[in-house]
Design a protein around this nucleic acid. Structure first.
Lengths: 107, 107
DNA sequence: CTAATATTCAACCTATTGGTTGAATATGAT
DNA sequence: ATCATATTCAACCAATAGGTTGAATATTAG
């Protein structure tokens, strides 16, 4: 089964370290080393997380000499947000309908 | 590290089968067997997915005799949606700022 | 009581994840 | 040229995920 775009996005977002990386990247282009510094794990571990974020197209890499500068690409988030919002809407509508039905039953 | 609520939610949403289960549940309370029927995997596998959804508090279980009726709880989605929306907002703002800066540079 | 149904529990298997360490590669600084 | 820096690659490891099958449990139906 080929992994759909939404799959990769959701998978990438499932890990707290990766979410932290994304938040950190929100302040602008960052080198791998600087990005990794605050995390209590090896540079290599962070490097692997970055690969997963790249696979999901949430992070872009620009080579500048020996440094790799990472930046965010928010596009894939649209699909993820859309999925969640759609569910929320459906479910909330359903719950509201249920509540109304119960209220009518009280008459 | 204790898994935060958002962690469990995101993890639960990361699997396509579980997202499909949630979508299926949007049409109302459903028995485990009926819920599992359309999936190309054993009932046991679906049962395990349900446990994970329960751990994330996205699904509630009501026992009615030998049947377990499952229903949705949209609350955890709020936090997930909030996280994604916040990121989107930040990143988009940043990208817009960058574009404006480039435009000014053209003058 | 017995048989069927609905569901979980338990053990197992394989693939993936998230981490490690050590070596390789590429670039920059002196 | 040499040394340091930035980063990945490769091999490994333990834990988890996602699936299987078979047995156990609880409830309902005949």
């Amino acid at each position: 089964m080929i992994a759909a775009a939404l799959d990769n996005t959701m998978l990438a977002l499932a890990d707290p370290t990766r979410r932290a990386i994304l938040q950190r990247l929100a302040s602008g282009e960052t080198r791998v080393t600087d990005l990794a510094a605050p995390f209590a794990m090896s540079l290599n571990a962070v490097s692997k997380h970055i690969r997963i974020l790249e696979r999901a197209h949430l992070v872009r890499r620009r080579r500048a000499g020996r440094e790799h500068l990472l930046s965010l690409d928010p596009k894939p988030l649209d699909e993820a947000a859309a999925w969640i919002e759609q569910q929320r809407q459906f479910w909330t509508a359903r719950l509201d309908a249920l509540e109304r039905a119960l209220a009518e039953n009280d008459d």
